[in-house]
Nucleic acid binder design. Structure first.
Lengths: 170, 170
DNA sequence: GGCATACATGATATAAAATAACATGACAAG
DNA sequence: CTTGTCATGTTATTTTATATCATGTATGCC
């Protein structure tokens, strides 16, 4: 179950998704980007927060708060729920991570910094999560909202199904 | 089934959640429809299930499982969590209700019987919920999914914001 | 430097949401 | 009337999330 290492440093090329890619670079880039963005915005990417982000980026899957907490403990950080939740709140609030409502779990943001309304594809078999863009105000829902006078502030779009790998194996 | 009913005017997309309507009739229709559909499908709309559905239809808002449980107790039904969760599971499974992931709560289905992929507008202030249609496989996410080889089985689409009433009051 | 302030973390406790597991009851089919 | 199936009742526990208060740490001001 633990696909901790996507050892294949293959050419990525595919937009966003379940394909193999240079994971090491992926992790490093994400962390570096976060550092820069925090500096720019006057935010503090403290050790706990950085570690949590690293964990999320490392896995390309949704991790529950308590899974994160376990690993924090292993790394010598505080081991009580608020430690994990606070770090996650920070990351979510500033766009470095997203909460997957369907799973009560969290993933690293795939497009940090980009103003975006994320949509997710969640594999029900292996819990892999891919992030795509959604077009919130366009389409039927936007039309319905305008018709009803509802002001959309935030969108949750989550598709559940089978990722390519799991489809193959089935 | 996917797009057969989409040649509709904007009027059809209007949600029933945020507007005045004959609520008494609304409740009765919903329950009657459920009865019929259960009979047709050989399902048993037992007292608990019926009561839970009634409660959900009565309020046009999301109710948590424990709110429902409290009321069940008041009505003389069992008062332990599984009682509520089982009834809710039944209703959700057979399309009489939906779970709002964002709230960990449940609403009656506004279009029971119709094969549909629901989208919700949730008022962050008063918790009112309106149901609209979403077009799951169309749009950006569908395209991204096809490109990635992801097979969508189920969609969660939830818009959070302010309903007309609460917008006015603010 | 000493001090005030704001923010971050640590730690205890508890709330809220959901499920596991097993026992009992209702009811139709054979 | 017995058997099988489905629904309900009940106990216990797990999982997810917050409230609260105490402590620590960086920063700016005097």
């Amino acid at each position: 179950m633990t696909s901790e290492t996507h050892s294949t440093s293959a050419q990525d090329a595919t937009p966003i998704g379940f394909q193999e890619h240079d994971h090491q670079a992926c992790v490093e880039t994400a962390l570096a980007t976060a550092e820069v963005r925090c500096n720019e915005a006057g935010l503090r990417l403290t050790p706990v927060r950085r570690k949590v982000l690293e964990m999320l980026v490392q896995e390309h899957r949704a991790l529950g708060a308590y899974a994160i907490l376990d690993r924090l403990r292993d790394e010598g950080f505080g081991s009580q729920p608020p430690v994990a939740y606070r770090a996650l709140d920070f990351l979510v609030q500033h766009g470095f991570a997203h909460k997957i409502e369907r799973l009560n779990a969290f993933v690293a943001c795939a497009h940090p910094g980009a103003m975006h309304s994320p949509a997710f594809m969640i594999c029900r078999n292996c819990d892999a999560v891919a992030e795509a863009q959604s077009a919130p105000v366009k389409g039927m829902l936007g039309a319905a909202a305008r018709a009803a006078g509802f002001e959309i502030e935030r969108m949750v779009v989550e598709a559940e199904g089978l990722c390519p790998d799991c489809t193959e194996k089935a």
